[in-house]
Design a protein around this nucleic acid. Structure first.
Lengths: 198, 198
DNA sequence: AAGTTTCTTGAGCGTCATTCAAACTTCAGC
DNA sequence: GCTGAAGTTTGAATGACGCTCAAGAAACTT
């Protein structure tokens, strides 16, 4: 019964990486199964052999992006810096790197596909929970050290995350007055007010 | 050159209303041109005669929904109530009425279609500007009357709107702990902090 | 070497938005 | 009431796309 997998995991990863690259280059609308297959030198059917559907492929691509960030986030949490600085690093990591951030394009696309798809929904909840947990840890730590004044940890964590999501959406949509820099400024202001550091 | 239109505007409106109803009933994924045409007793080609593309149809449907709300919003603004109450009415109006709010499903769908579509983007900016303007008016009025303490009107307006957008997204996605009631509570809390009424 | 499992392909299917030529309707001016 | 122009409506055709599936190739086990 020993695992018989050859390079399955490898092939999977290569597909995800290529998908994310393709999205960054041509946007999500330009990503087709056949097109991605060609970039990979394989066939459309083959990609579906691994992922089952385009929905699942996109979800896996989002997970792949998020997993890389989750590592960085863990590193941020472990750093020995002042709470405000740590919170700032968190904001930095959460917000899209720019208007064409593939991770955020994937979020938005998956939101649109979520209606009535319980698996997508719970996957998103799971990813979200990671951010929630780590942000709560930062806020709790800052409070314990007397650097922050947070009255309701859970509510404040959710609120800040919801705000970050809203700001991120606007950056990725490319709305006027919503560059990454603008979003970062707004996020810092809100964070400062929320933590009582102002 | 006198206008020759028969009931064109009427037909258009009927299509939009039916589209929104269909979305509320079966979700956006279930909305096809052929399906909508059948509900209307007409043909798919006919709908496109008026709207040109499905993107445009959805945008028009969003505008139609937003226009109805804009009227209510104007009514709210005109009411002679205390600023905190007025702000509360605003939050009430902005947030989705429930997880299947067609207006918000349209927003999310259009976000996904916005990439590289300048017309969609600027239309969204325009709609957004309406909310922004009216919220800023409420905050400014409250400040003038000494009920609110708002230090940077524009920044605070944008911040609250971004938060509302984030909260709304979660409600419509049906994430755990994100009912309309939850979102309303969170919005009120944030608004109170923002306006210094706490 | 044979058997089993995993991998890979590509033709074909069904669904969908969109196009378009043709037919139908309305209306102004006569 | 006729005519031509403008506006409206249809539905068949088109092309793109996600997805299925049967068949075969490759790798691994014994």
């Amino acid at each position: 019964m020993a695992t018989r997998r050859r390079d399955g995991q490898l092939a999977r990863d290569r597909m995800l990486e290529e998908a994310v690259t393709a999205i960054a280059e041509n946007g999500l609308a330009g990503l087709t199964m056949a097109g991605l297959a060609e970039r990979l030198g394989t066939s459309g059917g083959h990609i579906l052999y691994y992922f089952g559907s385009k929905d699942q492929l996109l979800l896996a691509a989002l997970r792949w992006s998020e997993d890389k960030l989750a590592e960085e986030r863990t590193a941020v949490l472990a750093r020995r810096v002042q709470p405000p600085r740590k919170l700032d690093l968190f904001l930095d990591l959460y917000l899209p790197v720019g208007a064409r951030d593939p991770r955020w394009m994937l979020w938005i696309e998956l939101w649109a596909r979520t209606a009535g798809n319980d698996e997508l929904r719970s996957a998103q909840e799971e990813i979200d929970a990671g951010w929630q947990r780590d942000l709560a840890a930062i806020l709790a730590d800052g409070t314990a050290r007397g650097a922050f004044t947070v009255d309701e940890l859970d509510a404040d964590t959710s609120e800040l995350l919801a705000l970050l999501e809203g700001l991120s959406t606007r950056v990725v949509l490319g709305l006027a007055g919503a560059t990454r820099a603008d979003a970062l400024t707004a996020a810092r202001r809100a964070a400062a007010r929320l933590t009582g550091t102002r």
